[in-house]
Design a protein around this nucleic acid. Sequence first.
RNA 1: UGGGCCGUCGCCAAGUUGGUUAAGGCACCGGAUUUUGAUUCCGGCAUUCGCAGGUUCGAAUCCUGCCGGCCCAGCCA
Length: 569
Amino acid sequence: MSESNEPISHFIRNRIDSDQERGTYGGKVTTRFPPEPNGYLHFGHAKSIFLNFGLARDYHGICHLRFDDTNPVKEEQAYVDAIREDVEWLGFRDAEHEHFASDYFETLYQGALALVKAGLAYVDSQSAEEMRANRGTLKEPGHDSPYRGRSIEENLDLFTRMRAGEFADGEHILRAKIDMAAPNLNMRDPAIYRIRHAHHHRTGDDWPIYPMYDYAHCVSDAIEGVTHSLCTLEFEDHRPLYDWFLDKLADQGFFERPLPQQIEFSRLNLTYMPLSKRKLIQLVEGGHVDGWDDPRMPTLKGARRRGFTPSGFRLFTDRIGVSKSDSLIDFGVLEDCMRETLNDSAERRICVLDPLKLVLVNFPEDGEETCHAPNHPKKPEWGKREVTLTRELWIERGDFALDPPKKYFRLKPDGEVRLRYGFIIKHVDHDVDAQGNVTCVYAEYDPDTKSGTPGSDARKVKGNIHWLSARDAVETQVRQYDRLFKVPAPGARREDDAPDLERDFLDDLNPDSIHTLTTYLEPGAARAEPESIYQFERHGYFVADQKEHRAERPVFNRAVTLRDSWGKG
RNA sequence: UGGGCCGUCGCCAAGUUGGUUAAGGCACCGGAUUUUGAUUCCGGCAUUCGCAGGUUCGAAUCCUGCCGGCCCAGCCA
């Protein structure tokens, strides 16, 4: 349980600690979470959110939520809203520290101007194809652009006119003048500004030019006073460029030192679950799921509808840690975290998923008996609720076995079992249809064994099954979700694949990832608000569907099953 | 003979300025409690740190050489 108290040591914390000791940033810790508003947040973002906001909280600093909206052709306001909701859902709404890279467009532009004036940036007029051709390859150096030697005056003139909108898309581009022979391709005169006559969701038509990520990101960090700029491993090669821009700008008096530092950690990988934006888009657009918030999707919207919780994600991020090694986390770890947090927070209810009729032969025809069920077995302060026992009940089909396996301790012919929170019953008979399926079970109840009454547990029975009055139970739709993919690494090559075989992750989709059941539910739970999460006893955790649940027509989604050691070993 | 990074128990992951017995979590395996085959509790779980050499009184930590994996040639982020 050490994970609940002491923060877990990891290399980023160590770095911050040593910066704190040395007073590098005057004791300040500022981070940022910088999503691009061009898609929905997924589980990987949850890791980043808890890391960045969590660190800021632990060190009494600030974490900025910054929308990285530097590419107007891909970004939309709708995504901004969705992302904001998700961040808030995880518990980090902070309007005061919400920003947009586009807020800094003017500063960014001035910075670029400064670089041009310092002879550190130039306007290139090669086509995109020429630029690519001259970039060289991984093993060969690139070649200088014929425009690389333009005078500062000419560059200034051209860049100002780019900003004024005098040129067409692609006609010119502003590049940093670094080194076309650099072994790190990012340093081969990277683009700073491209011309894009496009409408921006926030700045409208103010700008015909837009800054590139590498330039905009580090400058935005510096503007916000970010001290530790955390990102994933694939940006490691970009760090020299991050430092180059800030260093040059600081030289020009644009920023004060100390400058922000970029620190990279490994991204989240989960078994059975692709997390790349590209693949998630394919799932949605190909109609393989029911939209971005399909409960099977690894998006935060999907997780929410699935009944996953912010606290579960928090536990998960603590549990998996932060490092630089490529890791692949079993999806079961996430499920465990949800189980663990839900066990604590969810009230218990009863739902019969696969109903079988049970008749108490010695119970009066119109009789009823009020039983009391605790809302949480470990929290008596959460109270109890009433469940009514009648002659005819629904029990779980799986709780009666005509031909029980060894160690089966539910109901069987001539066997005894306790009706949870009710009475001990003894099997007396059952009906079987032509196919051999049990259609009804008859049992006698023992009136002296009512749960909670003195002497009720004088007689011990091992089995304990849940039930619902056939008179009161409410018909309810329950959706049971299974993993979306049938293999741990969708789309990955298998051991015995032919060398030329190309795999498509969509071929690994699990065709059977959703089961819709008609079940019986306790009346009180049927009236729950959407998004209420319960443990359906002996089954798992279920959430009233955010969109479709109605008291008159209840719809629940299964978040995760209870652990079940029956049958193991 | 491009550059950057990673390799510690089934899965994560501390430790890496060399110093006694290689943290912790998850999973797993026992056993106790239990009116959820749940939960909770208690116990077990790496003579070994990708491999091979070397330096040293002493190495997961330093050196050399291999092996394996990931990332990079968008006017995307």
